[in-house]
Amino acid sequence: MNQYIIKQIFAALIMGAAFLSPLTAWAGSCCGGGAATNLILPKYARGMIDLSFDVEKYDGFWNQNGKWTPDPPGSDLRQYRVNTGYAQRLASRWQTSIVIPYVWNDNIYSGLSSQTNGLGDTSLNLWYEAADDTSAWKIRSIEDLTPSVLIGPSLLLPTGISPYDDVHSSFDVTGRGFYRIDGNLYIDKTLHPWDASLSLSYGTYIERPVNREYGKFVEPYHKKLGDRTSASFSLSYIYYFGTGGDTLTGTASFSYLNEADGTIDGVRDPTSGFRKEAVGGAIAYSSTDHDWSLRASWSHAIRQDGWGENFPTTDIYTLGVRYVFR
């Protein structure tokens, strides 16, 4: 197999892994809060546009003790998001990306319905490709065991509508209202036709002053959300079909997210931290030249006690399309 094909396959797998990265599982919150996801650019590409559409359906929540509780009778709570992303290669080992979600909240209770929309929080990312995976079909040398390793920071910009904006209801909210800086590590290893990836992230929010809550001016105070830890693991199988090398990649994943308690004027807020665990499945199609690709994924929060704390349980369905510039 020549070098070009190896590069192509490697690039496709990185793309596939990026598609299927279960980071989208953290896009929601109980009352809006559309967050962005990460993009990873294929090795050979100069740029990439990614569009995806999420439907997040709420169905109950875990309370602070991890007990799962259903939503009120007659409720149907959903959030829709269109995520627009662009990634650009800066150098052979450096790349950057931006993802901007637009959010629609659609909440129906037995006695109330609300439909609102607005921009979500924007994510800016920078990746350094510390190691490359040659995507071996068979292990022949120690280099064949090398995974691809990407590290880099990301910045969450509070471009969404937050409780601290001039809004009147929690239903209007599409963002958290805080800057957050994350450190990210992404490791991916392929041994055909299998691929495994691990994504780790640790983020801290920047403390900010607050003088308004849901449109009402209040006595000013300083607030900081708790540090955020997330991890996800995925395992994929790549199926080649046709004569030209089209691929279909199926992925199963597990995701973990924890946000510690925040602080108000430096004092810990015991009501604010949360935890969520979710499982996911995805399928991605990539054309022979891997310039176009399509994906569909599903993230599922398990509606049982102990799989989360102080957080809504949701299903997230995603359809996405991606085009790569060479």
């Binding site: 910009l157 509070p158 509508i161 904006d165 809004v167 963002g175 002053p209 607050v210």
Partner: peptide, 11 residues
């Protein structure tokens, strides 16, 4: 509306 969050006020 995002300006309120990008440059929050404590007044």
């Amino acid at each position: 509306g995002m300006i309120d969050d990008l440059n929050p006020s404590g007044s």
